[in-house]
Amino acid sequence: MLVDNHCHLDFPDFAAELDAIVARARAAGVSRMVTISTYVRRFATYRAIAERYHGVFCTVGTHPHQAAEEPDVTAEELVELSRHPRCIAIGEAGLDYHYDRSPRDMQQAVFRTHIAAARATGLPLVIHARAADDDMIAILREEMEKGTFGAVLHCFSSGPELARAGLDLGLYVSFSGILTFKRSEDLRAIAADVPLDRLLVETDAPYLAPVPHRGQRNEPAYVAHTAAVLAEVKGVSPAAIARVTTENFERLFAKAVAAEAEAGAA
């Protein structure tokens, strides 16, 4: 079984057929999905989706694009919202200098707030990093010195320096459909160097559909295509990648396992 550790089931792209989207994922062997927060103010929506479907979880956080819209979200607010049993991580938060939709200093401040919440809760931080490798490395190193926290570099498309820095700090690295693109040789080389016990796979749906669906709307079922390419890169079987990435998910997102155990005992 596979896990799509990062998708956006709340997006309008899925509204008319969410039941079918989840059903197709399960039919493709995707046992768990995490619908990711981009606005803290929309947490009720993410929570409702996670409550609606077995095997679906959510997060709470402010995407760097929205940092200027939610600059005053506090670590305490994130901690409180994350107490919900289906909320298993903080984020996504981070730095995006490609689009610069929020001022960079504001992105950094909001990112540090989310790090504080991850540290306080013990929940992993879902990190968005694009075109900001140097600042991301500096902030992660500085914050880790204040106290450790778990995290994943989601939809990794950065350079090898950020990958190495993240691994040195104990982070996980998650690969999306970008890994399958013809011109992603450099990214596949980075993936080849990531230890098996730090790998995750995701869709970032509805974005970044992998080959052979590139250019179409992405959905969680398609994570199987990314996993197959990752298996080729690592020289192992697709079954081995499914097993390893699921084990890694359960280790990092331990609250999901606890929530499932509690639900099963109820």
Rank of each mutant, 00 (worst) to 15 (best):
4 D>E: 00
13 D>A: 14
15 A>P: 14
22 V>L: 12
22 V>G: 07
23 A>C: 00
24 R>G: 05
31 S>K: 14
32 R>W: 09
35 T>E: 04
38 T>D: 07
39 Y>R: 11
41 R>L: 09
42 R>Q: 15
47 R>D: 12
50 A>M: 02
50 A>Q: 11
54 H>F: 11
57 F>H: 12
58 C>S: 04
68 A>H: 13
68 A>P: 13
76 E>A: 04
77 E>F: 03
80 E>W: 15
80 E>Q: 12
81 L>M: 03
82 S>E: 08
89 A>G: 01
89 A>F: 04
94 G>S: 07
97 Y>L: 01
97 Y>R: 12
100 D>I: 10
103 P>S: 06
106 M>H: 06
111 F>S: 05
112 R>C: 05
116 A>K: 15
117 A>G: 11
118 A>G: 03
119 R>G: 02
120 A>F: 08
125 L>V: 04
127 I>P: 12
128 H>Y: 03
128 H>A: 10
129 A>K: 07
130 R>D: 08
132 A>K: 11
134 D>F: 05
143 E>Y: 00
143 E>L: 00
151 A>T: 10
151 A>Y: 14
164 R>I: 05
170 G>S: 11
173 V>D: 05
173 V>T: 14
175 F>N: 08
176 S>N: 13
177 G>T: 07
180 T>S: 01
182 K>W: 07
184 S>Y: 14
186 D>W: 15
192 A>N: 00
202 E>F: 05
202 E>T: 01
202 E>P: 00
203 T>I: 01
206 P>C: 05
207 Y>R: 11
221 A>K: 14
224 A>M: 01
225 H>S: 02
227 A>P: 06
227 A>T: 03
229 V>S: 08
229 V>Y: 15
232 E>T: 06
232 E>W: 06
234 K>D: 10
239 A>N: 15
239 A>M: 07
244 V>Q: 09
244 V>C: 08
246 T>W: 14
247 E>G: 03
248 N>C: 04
249 F>E: 06
253 F>V: 05
253 F>P: 12
255 K>M: 05
